[in-house]
Deep mutational scan, measured.
Amino acid sequence: DVEEQIRRLEEVLKKNQPVTWNGTTYTDPNEIKKVIEELRKSM
Rank of each mutant, 00 (worst) to 15 (best):
D1Q: 11
D1W: 14
D1S: 13
V2M: 12
V2S: 05
V2W: 11
V2F: 10
V2G: 05
V2D: 04
V2A: 08
V2Y: 07
V2T: 11
E3Q: 13
E3K: 12
E3I: 13
E4L: 08
E4V: 09
E4N: 09
Q5F: 13
Q5N: 08
Q5D: 11
Q5I: 15
Q5G: 05
Q5T: 14
I6G: 00
I6A: 02
I6Y: 02
R7W: 04
R7T: 05
R7Y: 04
R7L: 08
R7P: 01
R7E: 07
R7S: 07
R7N: 08
R7A: 11
R8C: 14
R8Y: 15
R8Q: 14
R8E: 12
R8G: 08
R8F: 15
L9Y: 02
L9D: 00
L9H: 00
L9M: 12
E10R: 04
E10N: 05
E10Y: 04
E10V: 06
E10G: 03
E10I: 06
E11T: 06
E11W: 02
E11D: 10
E11K: 04
V12Y: 14
V12A: 15
V12W: 08
V12D: 14
L13E: 02
L13H: 04
L13T: 04
L13D: 01
L13P: 00
L13C: 06
L13R: 03
K14Q: 13
K14S: 14
K14M: 11
K14Y: 09
K14F: 09
K14D: 10
K14A: 15
K15Q: 13
K15V: 07
K15T: 15
K15F: 11
N16R: 10
N16G: 15
Q17S: 08
Q17Y: 15
Q17C: 11
Q17E: 14
P18L: 07
P18V: 09
P18H: 07
P18T: 14
P18Y: 05
P18C: 14
V19Y: 07
V19D: 08
V19A: 07
V19H: 05
V19L: 13
V19G: 09
V19Q: 02
T20P: 02
T20L: 14
T20V: 15
W21P: 06
W21F: 14
W21E: 07
W21Q: 10
W21S: 10
N22D: 14
N22H: 07
N22G: 14
N22V: 02
G23E: 09
G23C: 08
G23A: 01
G23K: 01
G23T: 01
G23V: 00
G23P: 03
T24G: 03
T24W: 04
T24H: 13
T24P: 00
T24N: 09
T24I: 15
T24K: 11
T24V: 15
T25V: 13
T25M: 08
T25K: 03
T25D: 05
T25Q: 04
Y26V: 04
Y26F: 09
Y26S: 01
Y26W: 04
T27R: 04
T27S: 09
T27V: 07
T27K: 04
D28I: 02
D28M: 02
D28A: 03
D28Q: 04
D28H: 04
P29G: 04
P29D: 04
N30S: 13
N30R: 11
N30F: 11
N30A: 14
N30W: 13
N30Y: 12
N30H: 13
E31A: 08
E31Q: 07
E31H: 03
E31I: 05
I32W: 02
I32G: 01
I32A: 03
I32H: 00
K33N: 06
K33I: 13
K33F: 07
K33A: 13
K33T: 06
K34F: 08
K34N: 06
K34L: 10
K34Y: 06
V35W: 03
V35H: 02
V35E: 02
V35I: 15
I36G: 00
I36T: 01
I36Q: 01
E37R: 05
E37D: 14
E37L: 07
E37N: 08
E38Y: 12
E38N: 11
E38L: 13
L39I: 07
L39A: 02
L39M: 07
L39C: 02
L39E: 01
L39Y: 03
R40G: 03
R40F: 05
R40Q: 07
R40D: 01
R40P: 00
K41T: 10
K41P: 01
K41V: 10
K41M: 13
K41D: 08
K41G: 08
K41N: 12
M43H: 08
M43W: 04
M43A: 10
